[in-house]
Nucleic acid binder design. Structure first.
Lengths: 129, 129
DNA sequence: TTTATATTTCAATAATTATACAATTATTAT
DNA sequence: ATAATAATTGTATAATTATTGAAATATAAA
């Protein structure tokens, strides 16, 4: 029991933090790269390079995502890898949907158990078909 | 033709604007009041009072929601009434859902044609049952 | 027309957020 | 141990956002 990621409705305090974390050009772009990359994630340096940011700026921005729980962090050698946390995005979308038209209309659920082929994988598949 | 609210996918520029509009304690609270109130909306002064804000602060915050298209504005006598625009919230939730797990998994749709009994009405009904 | 009410605009200030560069820490390779 | 690479932290500065009170605008009532 109690092994699933908690489905508890996020509170408005966290929601504000998460919205603010995404409410910036660079951070939204970084998050989208990480969604594309899936569980493998992307090293800090590569995110910075792809977005055209100096290293310290990338750190500044990605820490906002990290504090909001929208991304995870792990070290591999001298690289620090970031990856999207789909559970948190689920919570955010769920909160907004519940506050959009009411409880019983919008129930979008993004299953974090199968995020291994997000957009990038789908695109590749489409291309090779 | 061309009378339906456009279902065009929002771009990331607008998305950042909309996220930023909601990413503040007072503005998220104001938006939630307006969702509860439904199409009838709430006058600026009453929103300010309910949130404990001075009038000019309320104006400052609600204009962020207005610029993002998340709320509409109309005048009735000397009151200015604000109301939630569900179409915009749909676009935002749709954008996030599409960037959560990929195009074909999360498709939450909040039908703006029937927002006449949002949470407040539902709660009242439940209470009287 | 004068007065009262509702809201917005303006101006000053405080607070927060963003950016860049230098310095530091952590890891790996020589 | 020294040097090289990857990332973060610290410091300074710029830019943006938030807050308040006073003044201006719009509408309605006396």
């Amino acid at each position: 029991m109690e092994e699933m990621a908690r489905a508890k409705t996020p509170d408005s305090g966290w929601t504000v933090t998460a919205l603010a974390a995404l409410a910036h050009e660079h951070r939204l772009a970084a998050y989208r790269l990480l969604v594309e990359a899936g569980p493998a994630g992307i090293a800090a340096g590569e995110i910075a390079e792809r977005l055209g940011l100096v290293a310290s700026s990338l750190t500044f921005h990605i820490q906002a995502l990290l504090r909001a729980g929208l991304v995870t962090q792990r070290r591999t050698g001298r690289h620090v890898i970031y990856a999207a946390d789909f559970t948190a995005m689920n919570g955010l979308v769920g909160f907004l949907a519940a506050n959009c038209c009411g409880q019983d209309v919008c129930v979008p659920v993004c299953d974090p158990a199968r995020p291994s082929k997000p957009q990038a994988a789908l695109k590749a598949k489409r291309r090779s078909a």
